[in-house]
Amino acid sequence: MTTPPGPARTLVRVFTQRFSCTRRGARLARQLALVELHGWGVPEGTPLSLDAGLLVSELAANAVLHGRVPGRDFELRMTLLAGVLRVEVSDARGDRRPVVRARDLRAGSGYGLRIVAALAADWGVTDRLVGKTVWAELPRRIRPVPPGGHEDDHDLG
């Protein structure tokens, strides 16, 4: 991704962690993402936290189900910028590209990328040396700092 200059792309925080490519790893990725967001001033239960938790869940589940290579982990990276939260999940399977499936009401699964596409302002896939990264961006609304307040007094969610 080419990052355009300007205040909307000012880096605020970054979190990167590898997880085992298992269902347990996917659950842990979501839990740690929410804990990290809370530490960044985005409390659990806020719209940004709820949407981010869902994105991490869907992308991590896809990495575990479709991107798994025995002996390889998947990686979660969250980047909190002034105007956007970027969630990236990388796995070792570069040959299996994510595809948004046609709507099939009889299918019990296959809706993960539809959820990602519905929540995210933008999303896509980038190649890596080994594997691929699926990323999604959520817009971040920032309340103005109250008169006489401090920058830390406003809700980052």
Rank of each mutant, 00 (worst) to 15 (best):
R68Y: 15
P47M: 08
D155M: 02
V35G: 00
V84F: 13
R18K: 11
R96D: 07
G39I: 00
S90E: 00
V84G: 13
R103F: 10
R23I: 15
Q17Y: 10
S109I: 05
L81E: 01
V89W: 05
R97G: 14
A136G: 06
P147Y: 14
I142A: 15
V145S: 01
L54C: 15
T133P: 05
F74N: 05
L113H: 07
R23S: 15
D91Y: 08
E151R: 04
E58T: 08
A118M: 12
T16Q: 12
I142P: 12
L11W: 03
V42D: 01
G71H: 08
T2Y: 10
A60C: 13
I142W: 14
R72I: 09
P47G: 08
G53L: 06
G108H: 09
A107Q: 04
T10M: 11
G112N: 04
V100H: 06
T2G: 11
A120E: 03
K132V: 06
A52R: 02
V89K: 03
E137Y: 03
A121P: 14
A29D: 02
P7S: 03
A26C: 14
H154C: 00
G108D: 05
L55P: 07
R27G: 12
T46M: 01
A121D: 14
A117S: 01
N62P: 10
R9I: 00
L119A: 10
P98I: 06
R114H: 09
Q31T: 12
V116N: 06
R106V: 08
P5L: 13
E75I: 00
R77V: 08
T79V: 14
A52S: 04
A26E: 10
V14I: 11
G110P: 07
P43F: 03
S57I: 10
D153H: 04
V130P: 01
E137R: 01
R18W: 07
E75P: 03
A136K: 02
H150R: 04
W135F: 02
G157E: 00
H66D: 11
H66L: 14
H66G: 12
E44F: 05
R30D: 14
A61D: 15
G45Q: 01
P4D: 00
N62W: 08
L129P: 15
P43K: 06
G45T: 02
R86P: 04
D73M: 15
V84N: 09
V56I: 00
E75C: 07
R93L: 13
R23E: 15
V100T: 05
P47Y: 07
H154P: 00
P146W: 08
N62T: 10
E36R: 08
L119C: 05
C21N: 13
E137C: 06
C21T: 15
R143T: 00
L105N: 01
R72Y: 09
D51S: 12
R77S: 13
V56A: 02
V89A: 06
R141Q: 11
L37K: 02
E36H: 06
D73V: 14
F19I: 04
E44C: 05
V12Y: 00
R30H: 11
T133K: 08
L129C: 14
L11Y: 04
Q31S: 09
L55S: 10
P144W: 08
R18L: 09
V14H: 10
G25T: 13
D91G: 14
A121F: 13
S20N: 15
V42Y: 01
M1T: 07
A33K: 07
